[in-house]
Amino acid sequence: MDKQKLEFLNAKSDEIRKILIEMIGRLGVGHVGGSLSAVDLLTVLYYDLAKVDPKNPKDPDRDRIVMSKGHAGPALYAALASKGYFPMEEIKTLNQAGTNLPSHCDMNKTVGVDMTAGSLGQGISAAVGMALAGKMDKKDYRVYAIIGDGESQEGQVWEAIMLAGNKRLNNLTIFLDNNKMQIDDYVDNINSVEPFDKKCEAFNMQAIRVNGHDKEALENAILQAHKTTDKCTCIVMDTIKGYGVPWAVSKGVGSHSFSISEKEWREFCNKEND
């Protein structure tokens, strides 16, 4: 990745994080940690590799991006807002009555959201269905599914991975947002999902482990998935819950959902007043 591109993507991920913190900050509380850990991937997808067009969000030939860890909806909304899928003003409505931006992703409410999610383990199955539809129709769109490490304790994730691996869905890339934490504790202290890459390989998939905040590594891994013709790829992204916002990271396991003060978000977003 050349320096110019990296600088551009870093500027975009900064912007998305600011939109995200403002969105949750204005509401006062929300799923901060697991949203922030997925921002760098969303930046690489929406600003670098995914074939999507905010002006044509229902294009049947578009790439699909499924946020299976539906509580990271705000990260997806921030990316979509920055891309211009809907007016930036809408971020002020997160979780307000009648909003198009509910806490968990809803494809019927938010322009640009490809699948409803929130009951964990389900989005990945739908992503497999989208990839199968692409094969049936001989289309060359790609499907990107983002799952959580905690989410992967759901059995359905493995039903979906088993099918994706066996059907050799090379048009599907699954990203594990491996931020190591879930609501109750560290994932390893509850029911470890590691070694996730080895598990995926055992399920007949290609697995690539990367630093999920290294955009160049992410890009390379995704390009490798694109080049792979006979396997579905899982990219295990080692991430930090709350990444990019020091006071979110410092909350540790508590970063999953917490309150943000007006002072905190305004300071982070460099927005003294509206």
Binding site: S125, A126, V128, M130
Partner: peptide, 19 residues
């Protein structure tokens, strides 16, 4: 999909999003 009804339903939903 094999003996995996939850995944069957999810896969159907994904297929349906594509028409």
């Amino acid at each position: 999909v094999g003996i995996a009804e939850a995944n069957m339903i999810g896969v159907c939903a994904g297929l349906a999003t594509c028409g």
